[in-house]
């Protein structure tokens, strides 16, 4: 069932990426573009006026939403590493796309081959874990290194031409965010948010107390598959800007930043907020100083995490000191 859904989604995304993309163009040019132009005039930030940065900001906002939303369910299962694994598998998918483009007459978007390979890898990893009872770390390591190995072999199998393109995918870049890609990312974001909204309760129950969820008749296995496939979508969506190597950070760091918020629903909202700060500020700094987007975003995210942790500790200590003082008098 998951495979069929994934296939249908893929076809839809292909249509979005290069089909009659009038809705996408209308949104980018007439709705979002006009609004951003107005914002640029209002604030006096020229950055906001260029279509290139407008697309980058839109992608940044999407990544800042879907990363923490899915990551909130992954981190507490100690599945944070699965993001990294699927990113490396997606790298193999990128290489497949570039290889096909370089070798054969027809062309496919490397973004979409990455999506297909990552979703397949997600299902494979989960099946290894569920059916064979393979220790999770081992199956993750096999898929992670295997994916990267396939990628590196394919990159070197052609005569150097695609090695140039691969760099942007490895480390991420604002420049690779094309109109087509931003359309796919928007669709992915809508899909991920909708699925999480629909499956919120079973996902939460299975994350919080898997055995009790099973006893309560919730099909935990199915929702585990849903979660890994969602992770694959997030990883591929975020990969262009974040890069294969750093993309997993968006699943983990904002969630860690928000972990002291009381209440799970509120902590998801706080994680999305932390994600927005990291991606929007990171993209701005990256543009301003001409440095790697993925790295800048991760550094801002980690900065937020450290600042929050220190803030909480200081406040806790101050509260305790205050209580002592009150008791003392």
């Amino acid at each position: 069932m998951v495979a069929t859904t994934a296939l249908v989604t893929l076809v839809e995304l292909q249509l979005l990426a290069d089909g009659p993309a009038s809705a996408r163009d209308w949104f980018l040019d007439d709705a979002y573009g006009v609004a951003m132009d107005a914002l640029a005039d209002l604030l006096g930030f020229d950055v906001l006026g260029s279509p290139f940065m407008q697309r980058a900001y839109l992608a940044a906002v999407c990544i800042g939403v879907i990363g923490p939303v899915v990551g909130s369910f992954l981190v507490h299962r100690e599945m944070g590493m699965i993001g990294d694994t699927l990113a490396h598998a997606a790298f193999a998918g990128v290489a497949v796309g570039l290889f096909v483009n370089a070798t054969f007459a027809f062309s496919v978007s490397p973004f979409l081959t990455a999506l297909a390979v990552a979703v397949v890898a997600a299902v494979v990893v989960q099946t290894l874990v569920e059916r064979l009872g393979l220790y999770t770390d081992t199956s993750l390591a096999i898929v992670l290194t295997g994916g990267f190995a396939v990628g590196s072999v394919l990159v070197t199998a052609t005569d150097g031409g695609i090695a140039v393109g691969i760099n942007a995918y490895l480390f991420g870049s604002l420049a690779t965010v094309s109109r087509g890609n931003v359309g796919v990312l928007l669709a992915l974001t809508a899909l991920v948010v909708a699925v999480v909204a629909l499956a919120y309760r079973p996902l939460l129950y299975a994350t919080f107390d898997e055995t009790a969820a099973r006893a309560a008749g919730i099909d935990v296995t199915r929702y585990n598959y849903v979660l890994v496939v969602l992770t694959a979508l997030v990883v591929v969506g975020a990969m262009q800007i974040m890069g294969v190597v750093l993309v997993a950070a968006m699943l983990v760091v904002p969630v860690a930043t928000a972990s002291s918020v009381r209440g799970f629903k509120r902590s998801v909202a706080a994680a999305v907020l932390a994600g927005q700060v990291a991606t929007v500020a990171g993209a701005t700094l990256s543009y301003q100083y001409g440095v790697a987007a993925g790295g800048t975003i991760v550094l801002v995210a980690i900065g937020c995490y450290v600042a929050t942790s220190i803030g909480i500790r200081v406040r806790r200590r101050a509260t305790r000191a205050w209580q002592r003082a009150v008791r003392g008098t």
């Binding site: 939460l204 129950y205 994350t207 107390d209 898997e210 969820a213 309560a216 209440g263 799970f264």
Partner: peptide
Amino acid sequence: VGYVAQDDAGAGDSMSVTVAEAVRMGRYP
């Protein structure tokens, strides 16, 4: 069927789930 395990609460411990949220899970099925 209600199930209560040993109090080692693995994942639940680090999550920000409140008592009210946890009890609401009883209605999820």
